[in-house]
Design a protein around this nucleic acid. Sequence first.
DNA 1: TTTT
DNA 2: TTTT
Lengths: 166, 166, 166, 166
Amino acid sequence: MMNRVILVGRLTKDPELRYTPNGVAVASFTLAVNRAFTNQQGEREADFINCVVWRRPAENVANFLKKGSLAGVDGRVQTRSYEGQDGKRVYVTEVMAESVQFLEPKGQNQNADRGEGYTPRPNGGQDNPFGNQNQRQPQPQRNTRLDEDPFAGGGQIDISDDDLPF
Amino acid sequence: MMNRVILVGRLTKDPELRYTPNGVAVASFTLAVNRAFTNQQGEREADFINCVVWRRPAENVANFLKKGSLAGVDGRVQTRSYEGQDGKRVYVTEVMAESVQFLEPKGQNQNADRGEGYTPRPNGGQDNPFGNQNQRQPQPQRNTRLDEDPFAGGGQIDISDDDLPF
Amino acid sequence: MMNRVILVGRLTKDPELRYTPNGVAVASFTLAVNRAFTNQQGEREADFINCVVWRRPAENVANFLKKGSLAGVDGRVQTRSYEGQDGKRVYVTEVMAESVQFLEPKGQNQNADRGEGYTPRPNGGQDNPFGNQNQRQPQPQRNTRLDEDPFAGGGQIDISDDDLPF
Amino acid sequence: MMNRVILVGRLTKDPELRYTPNGVAVASFTLAVNRAFTNQQGEREADFINCVVWRRPAENVANFLKKGSLAGVDGRVQTRSYEGQDGKRVYVTEVMAESVQFLEPKGQNQNADRGEGYTPRPNGGQDNPFGNQNQRQPQPQRNTRLDEDPFAGGGQIDISDDDLPF
DNA sequence: TTTT
DNA sequence: TTTT
């Protein structure tokens, strides 16, 4: 079993940063990736690919990327489902970014993460290495918690700590 | 702009082979890719990733892969949208396979395509290199044309020759 | 069998453009890719990865990239060997770029190739779609033919039309 | 800066397992990856790609893979150089595997690593999470230490703990 | 024998 | 609504 995605494209909007009830950061953003070929009408289309990133790189994304930023993503394709507002199950395919690369020339901070994914430091046996008390954990800027689909917006909470990649 | 996906997983069902009105083959299948890590309940989950492949490799997929087959995909993440049955726009993220690799040990034919993607042979200037008259073009086994979403099933036609990768 | 490489880095020097005896363009360049992590001395190292690209994208690389340019490569790892000057066999591992992406902000031409690899146009049955007579085929700027290893420099001819990816 | 390689191929020989002076495991192996296309003589060639893997996955590779095994590698292209026996600098390009997938059908253990790379467990502040005293650390089967190039064989020590990926 |  |  292998699952690897690499994307380079531009953010369609500013990224959204949220926190799980346990205080773990999640950022979501959509990358517009222009296709390398034109369609039969001669137009160059783009794919709009939803991406999610957790923890420290999530905060870096929120701090350093904005609408229009050129960014590279190295991650995995992930699928989930949630209960839609009409009671129907909604299936979602998105990219779990393990690392995000800032490709804008102006920025001095050129790395959205610490490198080879995010290795949590030991925290004395707690399941979740970041608690709300953790001073390394910035508090949400806006009163935003993970009560809905980071992309679909209107749904119920469907990302929880269970989705943590480790 | 870069867009690359590599997957290795197992087909959840037999692939579905369809043809556009112009007689171009499209196969769709879902790959179950087990995650490399376990969730907080200690269970190993999987991602169920919808894949589409066109032309010759589509026919190879239909001929050589079935439910449970181990296969590798090299392709791109692609997004599209179509009008749902309730009039709402439905957004779809799937993998456009450029080549599909058969990883089952039993088969002697180990390649689902001719190699580096599919290079259409010249056909004297027609837009579509395969017409219904083309004897290299097998006719649909079942009376299946591309009148609906190959995955969602209930929608309107949303894959046409316009989606051809070249 | 699968083989896919994606790189984003900077050219260490201007690319070198050569032509096979049959007039097929080959460009070679080295990409410096900074590692995402620091070594035990706290220094950020880089990998210096030799890349080769054929035909039209080769000419685009030669025309649009130079020392220091930020570029993305999508291709395959390839190995070859040649007779070294001391009679010993020299083994070479390099990246065969199928497409090269220009990631510099200044350039308006943002694509080094036509997209999904290079699909040769039909040319009436010749083995090599480009002959020296082909007016679309620029002549070498310098009197450079493929008489040596594009990277090692001092060896014998070891890239020929046999290495063409199709 | 991005650097990602995915390979699926067969081991050309049994893997070699060595240990650094600090007791960190390193396995090296060569993957034969058949090309998806034939050359101008109609023969299907292969690329022979040297791979290196560290720590726990190294031991899994040594325990579960052998000559002829089908394996998938997800990693990075890495370059290094060392002093050759003739005093000349030798440049090496190889693949640093972050995870190795066992694709043989017979094996029950289907995973060469714990998943998303190898996250060392905390060990009380030592720089190197594995010491020779560590009972989880198997001793070398053969009296093999890292005194030479794992591939070139005749060179001087050129892999040390400095090359550890974290 | 290297890029920013 | 899923694979081994």
